[in-house]
Structure formats: structure tokens, C-alpha cells
Amino acid sequence: MIEQLTIPFQYEYMLKAIFVSALIGGVCAFLSCFVTLKGWSLMGDALSHSIVPGVALAVMLGLPFAVGAFFAGLLAAAAMGFVKAKTPIREDATIGIVFTSFFALGLLLISLYPTGFNLRTIVFGNMLGIADFDILQAIVICAIAMTVLLAKWKDLLLFCFDANQARSIGLNTTALHFILLSLLSAVAVAALQAVGACLVVAMLVTPGATAYLLTDRFGRMLGIASTMGVLTSAAGAYASYFLDGSVGGCIVVLQTTLFLLAFAFAPKHGMLASRRASRKAIAATLQEVSA
């Protein structure tokens, strides 16, 4: 039985998949705290789809795909910002327009100029077949993102919470906005490998949302989310061996399970807790009234 459980560890591709998934999952989860609090979930989804034409172009030109993806992401963000500033169209509509057009452009490019690059890889990820160069790429992205996040998380927190205060003490909020956007773009690129464009947003939202239910302190929220990201991603990759299922699917289902558990049982913000609290409050009032 034990032997069976360790089988995945005997394969190098499984070890790689577990390691890279955990790494990406952790960084995504750390970032997810900012994404959920800033209300950028839709933005994360949009970016992860918008990078597709960048990937296609980069592959056609023989560049590392992360480069193309990153710039396509930033271009999409800039386009959204531009449309938002210049028209009164609502933000969700703007995001919808921009990311679908980018995604469509990507599809078109790939279908017109087949390069041997598989569309499935972009849309659903391909963790088990990940190339060494792509692993290196993911490690570099995660290392840079994590360094920036660890150094600047307090500034980013203030920026998300109260941009006016950040500005009034002389922080460069334009730069902070750009940093957060670039991080989102870069990390989405890395996550593309693991779970594919469709599920990136889950990795960028679910851990943060779960941790939010469990604590009222941002520092702890970061810790909980990252731990959850690392563990679920590693476990998801591991489980995919036995289920013979998609790695992305396993990771995201695991994360959702944890979210549901937190949703029901969280000590303060969970459903049961609030019900208990309101029952207690009612009982207390009744007692007061009868006394």
C-alpha cells in the first residue's frame, strides 16, 4: 500500500510536476490576496486569456514564450485602461471586449500559422510534459515575483487599501499599480504552464478568498493563502497520477474544496459561525427582555 503511494515519486516527470506546481501555486496564492482585495479577479482572468497571442507570436519568432506573453498581458491591461479612461463604458464590459479580442487574435494566429505549438497546452496547461526550459522560465518568474512581493507587500497593501494615503505620504502609486499589474501578468504566464489559461484565475483568486474567510489580519492571510497554494498544488499534481486526470483540474478542485470548507466552518466569517452568532445574539436579547 505504502509502496503504491510513493510510485509517483519514482518518476522524474512527476517530481518535476509536483515541484513546479507547488512553486507556481504558492506565488499565485500570495498574489491572490492582493487580487481579491483590490477586486481584480476579472482582471486576472482577462490577463490570462490575453497573453495567448503573445505566446503565439513569441513561438513564431523563436523567442521564449514568457516574453511574448508578458508583453501581451501588459498591452491588454493598457488597452483596458485606455478604453476605461476614454469612454464611459463599464469596466466589466471593457475587460470583456479587450480580453476576448486578444484571445481571438491568438486563436487566429495559431490557426493561420501552425508552429507545432499546441493550443491545448495554452488552454489547459501541460504540467506533465513540461520542458526543462519552461521549468527554468517558471522558476525565474516565480523568484522575481516573490522577491518583489516580499519586499513591497506593505506598500502594495497600503495601495490596495487606501491609495490616497499612499499618495499623500509620497509613495508612487502609478508605479505600484504598474508593479501589481506586471506581477499579475508575469505570474499568469507561469501559471499558464500548470493549469492553462482557463484555470489560471482560480489559482489567482481561490486561495486569497479562502484565507480572507479565515482571518482578519492581512499578514496571516498571506501566510494561510500561500500555504494553501503550495499544498493544494503539490497534492493536486500528485493526485493526478492516480486519477489519471488533468493536473490543473486536480489542483483547482482541491482548492475549491478547501474554500467550501472555509465557507462553511470558518470560525468567524463562516456560515455556521454567523448562524451561531446570530442565534446567540437572539437568545441574549430574549433573555434581556424576559429579565
Binding site: 482585495l37 506598500d155 490596495c160 487599501f161 509613495l171 489580519r217
Partner: peptide, 24 residues
């Protein structure tokens, strides 16, 4: 700030908020 400008659901404590005044 005016109350409406602040996101009151943010997971920060009173202490954290006041400490933000010292960041500069």
C-alpha cells in the same frame, strides 16, 4: 478620508491602519 472612500471590509486592524501613517 470621508467614510465612503474607505473599504471597511479590508483585513487590517486598527493598529495596522495607524501604523500605515508611519510608512513614510
Amino acid at each position: 478620508p470621508q467614510s465612503e472612500e474607505v473599504d471597511w471590509t479590508f483585513p487590517v486592524s486598527v493598529w495596522d491602519v495607524v501604523m500605515m501613517g508611519r510608512y513614510g
